[in-house]
Nucleic acid binder design. Sequence first.
DNA 1: CGGCTAGTTGAAGACACTCAACGAGCGTGG
DNA 2: CCACGCTCGTTGAGTGTCTTCAACTAGCCG
Lengths: 244, 244
Amino acid sequence: MSLDPRFSDEMRDRLPPKHDARWTLGISRRESMDEPVEKATRHLDLAARECVLDEGDEARSLYVILEGAVMLSKLLPDGRRQIIELLGPGDIFGLSTNRLSDVTAETVLPARIVVYDRHTAESSAALQRLVSERMKAQICALHDHAVLLGRKTAVERVATFLMRLVPNRGGAGCAGPLSERRPDQANVRVPLTRQEIADYLGLTLETVSRAFSQLKREGFLVYGRHDEVTIANVCRLCKCTGSH
Amino acid sequence: MSLDPRFSDEMRDRLPPKHDARWTLGISRRESMDEPVEKATRHLDLAARECVLDEGDEARSLYVILEGAVMLSKLLPDGRRQIIELLGPGDIFGLSTNRLSDVTAETVLPARIVVYDRHTAESSAALQRLVSERMKAQICALHDHAVLLGRKTAVERVATFLMRLVPNRGGAGCAGPLSERRPDQANVRVPLTRQEIADYLGLTLETVSRAFSQLKREGFLVYGRHDEVTIANVCRLCKCTGSH
DNA sequence: CGGCTAGTTGAAGACACTCAACGAGCGTGG
DNA sequence: CCACGCTCGTTGAGTGTCTTCAACTAGCCG
């Protein structure tokens, strides 16, 4: 039995291909989230690679991701792009100090999102708690990401990225290898293109590809079909992240 | 008359050297902040380079900076350091999802800081508003910084850093050059060492030094005494940041 | 004066980037 | 059915930017 029944070999082939909520980015460590009780202004049901919000758009709403994944990115005038955050179920976006969004938000996976207007968001205690909780978590994630962008090598960045895709591992609440006897494997899906990973990790797509190849060559990874990757030994990969 | 009377040539020489609250990092665009009404658990009155909180310390309190500047940093196990955020009056820190601080906090300038325990912070509406407001602003700043770390060249990073030191310029609320006839000058103090700037910008101290030298050679900067620098033309420097 | 720290500058090297070719997978249309 | 075009990923060769290592200077304090 592998780490998580959701990702076991036996089940993998039986899973519907893309449109399954079980395939999240593994980032927020849950598959989906219950909808907050307040009446939402709107519900969004989006396919992958749909734009939710553009940098500079008016942003007077609170967006809560129920299912799927969203990426936030920023562009420099000459076209250089940085993907800032990858968000999953329970995460929020759309808030900003002034009334304009400072980032572009696009879906990475098919996503269900609820939208609350500013007034509803601010007058609901439950939503305020959610917002406060999630902002703290996002700030922590941004801190880690700053270390990655400022100080890590290409292979360390890619290893760190892959570790994020493994549920319940690598973070503060790392479960550790489940059993001594079983190989510490994990199957993950990488729903981002090399270009997107590169823009997230502050690299070029070629460098990302080379880092993947190197990890594969050295036995850390085995490519599956489509965008599936098997991490041969999660603990060993974790040692490549520079953080441990 | 220069942009801001605090930074005019005429006044500069008369100012007391370091221990003046007027010399903030210019980051939060204000000199100091009124103390929130709630009764604080503690008051801290710190010199420069004092440690407030270590990565991994218990963090059950909310820290509010009234005056001065604080830097948040993280270390990798092999000693690589990334300075994550530079905070000024009005900014907060110490919050984290779990009960441990994810960053180290040290003063950059002499600082006055008030500390509220978790319970006080959570039960005061005024403090909650402050926290929410500041967290949003910090997330925006972290987004910008991710772009810098992921996508900007060394000179662009240093130029962006210098622009942050100029009050009311470069950001969303950039005032623009004040007058057509006057040179668009600004005098700033750079209270960080080259090593600290390097750790903030994801570079080495030599690269930072070379970028400063290049900007000086090309007439963007004139070195003053101590850690003072004159930006010959703020608008022109802003074009070196890659953001405009 | 000597010792210390901070900053500058040069030379050589490493790591990631750029440019380019090529291959796999997939949908379209003849 | 296969050819075709398209996107995405891989890999190689050469280049460039930033790093590393090292020497040297300026300022400060005892």
